[in-house]
């Protein structure tokens, strides 16, 4: 475990905590895309199936449980908690997210490292995670007033992806056999999707203004 990887995981954890704080404490999910959250729940459910078959470390298992538990509870909160559900921007959150799932599944069936059930699902989860943020980014663009917590949530998620790229660069140079093209390319695509958001986030921070994305 290197410092970039740990920082990436902690940033990911922080993003989830920020979102849970908003939903649990403020009882609001305004500006949060349920579509993206559903995709993340699928991502973690398909990637972490190896919880039953392989053991890496206590850290690894605990973090997997945290991400599984938090992603599913966020979805359930947004769908079934009366107060939280009322704050959901249903009319704005219209991205056809199921249309992302099938192409990712087909791609995983075609391009993978090993053709086994767990491996194909694991690869599918990488492809799906790469595009899972799209409904959220579209919703942000449609939302006039992006509150601080929602902005921070997306900023932290993007930061987590960026740190993972540094982690791969570090591992490539320190672990001679560490070459994983599928992970790298889907991770890179995922990080690039945040580029636009990062630009406007840094602008609003620099000018000390409220975050607003151009339509």
């Amino acid at each position: 475990m290197n410092i970039f990887r740990l920082a990436g995981d902690m940033t990911h954890l922080a993003s989830v905590l920020v979102l849970l704080l908003k939903i649990h404490t403020i009882k609001s999910c305004a500006g949060v895309s349920l579509k993206t959250q559903e995709l993340y729940a699928i991502v973690f459910a398909t990637r972490y199936l190896d919880i039953f078959t392989s053991f890496y470390s206590i850290y690894n298992t605990l973090m997997k449980l945290v991400f599984l538990g938090s992603s599913f509870s966020i979805v359930l909160y947004m769908k079934y908690h009366k107060t939280v559900h009322r704050s959901y921007d249903r009319e704005q959150d219209t991205f056809r997210h199921w249309f992302l799932v099938l192409p990712c599944l087909l791609l995983a069936l075609l391009i993978h490292e090993k053709f086994t059930f767990l491996e194909v699902l694991w690869t599918f989860s990488l492809y799906l995670e790469a595009v899972a943020i799209l409904p959220q980014l579209v919703l942000l663009q449609r939302t006039r007033n992006i509150d601080n917590l929602t902005g921070q949530y997306v900023f932290l998620l993007g930061g987590y992806r960026g740190l993972y790229i540094l982690n791969w660069i570090y591992r490539y140079f320190t672990e001679p056999h560490f070459v994983h093209w599928i992970t790298w390319i889907s991770g890179l695509v995922q990080t690039l999707l945040y580029a636009d958001f990062f630009f406007y986030y840094s602008q609003s921070w620099k000018n000390n203004k409220k975050l607003q994305l151009p339509a």
């Binding site: 990887r5 392989s54 470390s57 690894n60 997997k64 672990e175 001679p176 056999h177």
Partner: peptide, 10 residues
């Protein structure tokens, strides 16, 4: 080397 080294990532 472990084939699944990347799987220790989250």
């Amino acid at each position: 080397p472990n084939d699944d080294d990347v799987k220790d990532e989250l």
